[in-house]
Amino acid sequence: MDLALQLLFTGIGIGAVYALVALGFVLIFRATNVVNFAQGEFSMVAAYLMVVAIEAGLPYWAAFIVALLGMALLGVIFNLGVYYPLRHRTYLPVIIATIGASILLANSVLAIYGPQPQVLEGWFETPGIQVGPVYLDSQYLLIIGVTICLVIFNFWFFEKTLLGKKLQATSQDKEMASLLGISVSTMIMITFIYSAVLGGLAGILVAPVLFVSIQMGSTIALKAFAATIIGGFGDVAGAIIGGLALGVIETFGAAYVSVPYKDGFAFLVLIAFLIFRPQGIFGERVAEKA
């Protein structure tokens, strides 16, 4: 029982990381119908920006702001350089361009910063607390907390604010939105900025746990993508639930089935979902309007 509780906590912690990255995926997908394969690299770049800013002597909070501003800029560049020129083409060229962007980002950081992993200290001084039989890592607690806050914030933002509603209108029907006088390209730009900042936030939050390395983003991103599909594509709550579920499944799978095949569970679950319950996860089948 103690064992299961400890595994559950870790699973939820890891799952919250997947959920954060998945959120960025979902937002971009809803706005542009494109899966951004460079989403994981956003997390990696933000963590490196944070390391650089701290090395430059900035205090933690200032480094945090600098890193997030840097991510906002990256979101703008990414939109203008990768998505915008291809916006009238099918999904395929865009997917491939984002794969290219992910290679470009990962290796640019490698070229500038070298291959060794870096250390980024956590926000808290104490590494964690022991509650009965379970050890709670303080950074995981923070990640879980931030995830909960973001869910609430997203709900408020998309349902209660005018900008949020405009963004939603854009993602649901671009033609209609532009008829209503919403600037679609501005909305898409905002979406990219927001997603880049979210991805960056996830990167900065996990860096103290996983260290800062070139590969840190890509493995998380693949799992996060699987999480979005399991949870239900295009749905914010689905991404969070999918992420958490995946984290827990993985941790328990590793403990009770096989450690070396741990990374395979996510993908097996995903394929099983796609084969056996595709309707269950999309809800209404989306048919192209003739």
Partner: peptide, 10 residues
Amino acid sequence: YLAIYGLFVI
């Protein structure tokens, strides 16, 4: 090299 490669894909 790989960074340039990624850029070329785009």
